[in-house]
Design a protein around this nucleic acid. Sequence first.
DNA 1: GATGAATGAGTCTTCATTCAT
DNA 2: AATGAATGAAGACTCATTCAT
Lengths: 208, 208, 208, 208
Amino acid sequence: MARNPVPVEDVRAASARAERRRQILDAAKHVFADAGYHGASINAIIERAEIARGTFYLYFESKEAVFGALLDEAMTELRHRIVRIDTAPGARAPKDQLHDSLSSLLTFIVSDRPLATVLLSSSATPDAEAAARLAAFYAEVRSVIALSLETGVQIGLLRPCHPQLTAAALLGLVRGVVEHCVTRATEQPIHDVTRELIDLALVGVLAR
Amino acid sequence: MARNPVPVEDVRAASARAERRRQILDAAKHVFADAGYHGASINAIIERAEIARGTFYLYFESKEAVFGALLDEAMTELRHRIVRIDTAPGARAPKDQLHDSLSSLLTFIVSDRPLATVLLSSSATPDAEAAARLAAFYAEVRSVIALSLETGVQIGLLRPCHPQLTAAALLGLVRGVVEHCVTRATEQPIHDVTRELIDLALVGVLAR
Amino acid sequence: MARNPVPVEDVRAASARAERRRQILDAAKHVFADAGYHGASINAIIERAEIARGTFYLYFESKEAVFGALLDEAMTELRHRIVRIDTAPGARAPKDQLHDSLSSLLTFIVSDRPLATVLLSSSATPDAEAAARLAAFYAEVRSVIALSLETGVQIGLLRPCHPQLTAAALLGLVRGVVEHCVTRATEQPIHDVTRELIDLALVGVLAR
Amino acid sequence: MARNPVPVEDVRAASARAERRRQILDAAKHVFADAGYHGASINAIIERAEIARGTFYLYFESKEAVFGALLDEAMTELRHRIVRIDTAPGARAPKDQLHDSLSSLLTFIVSDRPLATVLLSSSATPDAEAAARLAAFYAEVRSVIALSLETGVQIGLLRPCHPQLTAAALLGLVRGVVEHCVTRATEQPIHDVTRELIDLALVGVLAR
DNA sequence: GATGAATGAGTCTTCATTCAT
DNA sequence: AATGAATGAAGACTCATTCAT
């Protein structure tokens, strides 16, 4: 057996560092959720994380940097949960695929209330770059939805519609639902919420 | 006849005061839209309003107070445009009523981009009370929608649904559309947008 | 008599502002002299000036700005006192002209001990621009001296020498003398100091 | 014979320690020269020395301590090069002695640009004690010069002058020349510079 | 002996608010 | 009523120093 090229201490150190980072990230998430980007103070973050002022800057360059890291992490998670619908002949029913994808996404976001709060409210200009990044993320999601809509229309599954506008509306719809779930204390099972959300999007509220 | 209890000068003075107030309110609206609540500085507001620092505090108690006044004004305007659907036998088709009401609302909000920006982004905790007021407003709107949904279901116009959840979703949908209209430079006619929005809400995206 | 175009209050306000500025500038000069550029804290300056923290920034953009203003002011004063020797036929004896010019310069600088300290010690990198400005000033002085030397050599008044090097040496010589005067508590009359300085520069220390 | 009281390993260790110390001292010298005392950060020093943060404090008590050590070292070197002129009957010509002594001194200081920078600029109050030490060194030099001047006057070699003041002036003159040599990229041979400097000090700039 | 993560006092700067004129 | 100079609490960030490993 070859000698382990990465000494045990380094691994420990690395994971200790990662833990510290997580601890700060978590504290920051709560503070951002409570006070918004501008309202959040480094003071509040380090108090919550129970670290010294300087320690914060050992792990993040600036307030903006933590915020950015928070967004990036969330966006990565969310991206994993956004799956393109497979419309190939043998694939599962699109509605079922949609249900699973959305369900996973909602479960993730609703289970992390502070994160949801940050994502929902942070269009509030958190200083240039971070705002841009979030805006870019939402734009990306909208464009995924718009493309899906176009495909759906082409294969006759969906009725004709203005894809950009409809995508914006649907994203808003999901955001509204997330806000609902996060705000209300009494939580319905996510599966039911997802079903209702999908029904609303697919067939609307009108009785047949 | 008794002497007019309100002298002419006072009326003039009162209206001059009201104009000044308006001037400040408008300036504040733009600044809040550009920079968010925390990012907005009294400096920026008084520069835009072309008044002295102290004058600001002659009209508003604090930064939070202008923000609150701004929200209150907007909420009053919006409330006027939210009309309960008349489902009495002789009334116009519910869909047409809905179209007119929504159309008027969207026209109002989309034509005032800064106001829209403030309303959309201001969940970003602008210090306690103002945030609470906006939240209360949205809750009010949601409850109007929820009641309408319940009525609609009762009279068989709408299919059964979870009213709270669906109301939250629909509000989100409208917000998404407003954001779309405000963000995009190329503006579609509001009537078309409204029609699309209503179709989406009523019959969804699925082809029949 | 025409009406005074500048209202009395404005004049008062302007001079009040100027006084405030001077008050801060003086405080800053002492603090810079005591602690050097980096060592000087805004805290120390405002305490000495007996003003509030914010007031400082009403008059100066930054710490660097006060320092720059201080240097500029001093440099302006010094420039006024650096007079080119008139070597025209009817002019006063060059040595006398030199004496008057130097005497005025030394009187000015020696009477303002803190200023002298700042000027003597501030080659210690006070952040970019200010350092550059002071360096430029000294370079300017050196070049004035060098030119004078060249002229003197051409008209046969001075013996041939390397102008740049000699100018640097003479500037150092003056600085040494200033330092001497500023450091020693027992002050000789400036006229005597000036005479000695000039003798040294002109005929050296060697006995004939 | 008794066992050698200083084991070989200790010698090695001692010299290893000395090397480390030198390594840090050199790094510090460059950093102080680049950024001045206050502007210099321990960070910059340890990065340049390629050592860990804690290691620095194993060799020096504090930032001030390295600075002090730097000055002490330089002062020791300089002291070795300051030789009293021998005016005994059989001795070499005083001017030649002076030339050799000054030449050696200038060669040393000019060849170590960072050190020269530190020595020239460090009157910028590097925190109490170090500044005092440098001031003491300069005072010492001045007093050597003053004594030499007095002797020279007594033996009729020099013309009468105020020794303290002239010493201060001459020290300034040397500093001015050093600054000139260190600043200019194009370096004249030190011997020429020395000759010019000595001529200036001895016979001044006036033509006979 | 060497390391570098952690510390927290201290820095510069901003900005909502007050108040004498 | 209007002004704007003055205020000082609070903010983000730096850096010399310590100490457990």
